[in-house]
Simulated assay, not measured.
Amino acid sequence: MTLAYWIVAGLLASFYLYAGVAKVICSRDRLRPMMAWVDRIPLPAVRALGTLEVLGAVGLLLPPATGIAPWLALAAAIGFVLLQIGAITVHLTGEDRQVMLNAGLITTAAVTIWPATSWL
Rank of each mutant, 00 (worst) to 15 (best):
G59P: 03
R28T: 12
V99M: 05
P33Y: 09
W71V: 11
A77N: 09
S14F: 12
L52E: 10
A45H: 05
L3N: 10
T51Y: 01
P115Y: 04
T93Y: 12
K23I: 00
L92C: 11
I41S: 06
P42M: 09
L61K: 03
L3Q: 11
L31K: 01
A45F: 09
T108M: 15
R32P: 01
A45Y: 05
M35I: 09
L17M: 14
A73I: 00
V90D: 03
V46S: 02
D29G: 10
I113C: 13
G56N: 06
A45M: 14
T117S: 10
M35L: 13
A73C: 07
G10R: 08
A9C: 01
R32M: 13
R32H: 12
L61G: 06
I25S: 14
Y5W: 06
G67W: 07
L31C: 03
L74P: 00
G59W: 01
K23D: 09
W71C: 04
Y16W: 12
V58A: 15
I7F: 15
P63S: 12
T107S: 15
P115T: 03
E53M: 12
K23Y: 02
P115M: 05
R30M: 11
T112A: 15
G104L: 09
W71R: 11
N102E: 14
L101T: 10
A116I: 00
A69Y: 12
L92G: 05
H91G: 08
R47P: 05
G50S: 10
G59I: 02
T2D: 15
W119F: 15
I78V: 15
I41H: 05
A65I: 02
G104F: 01
A73K: 02
L72Y: 03
A65K: 06
P115H: 06
S14E: 07
A77P: 04
A36C: 05
A87G: 14
G104R: 07
L92P: 00
A77I: 00
L55M: 12
V99K: 00
R28S: 13
T51I: 14
E53C: 08
I25G: 07
P64F: 04
D39I: 03
F80G: 00
A65E: 07
D96H: 13
L92T: 07
L49Q: 10
I68W: 15
G67R: 09
C26F: 13
A76S: 15
A48Y: 11
E95L: 08
L74W: 11
Y18P: 00
A73Y: 02
V81A: 04
A57F: 03
W119V: 04
S14C: 13
G67P: 04
L31H: 03
T51H: 02
P33C: 11
Y18A: 13
S14R: 08
G86C: 09
E95V: 09
A109K: 01
K23R: 14
G10L: 05
T112G: 07
I113E: 08
A13T: 01
V81I: 10
N102K: 08
P44M: 07
A110Y: 03
R28E: 14
L43N: 09
T107V: 12
R47W: 04
A19N: 09
A9D: 03
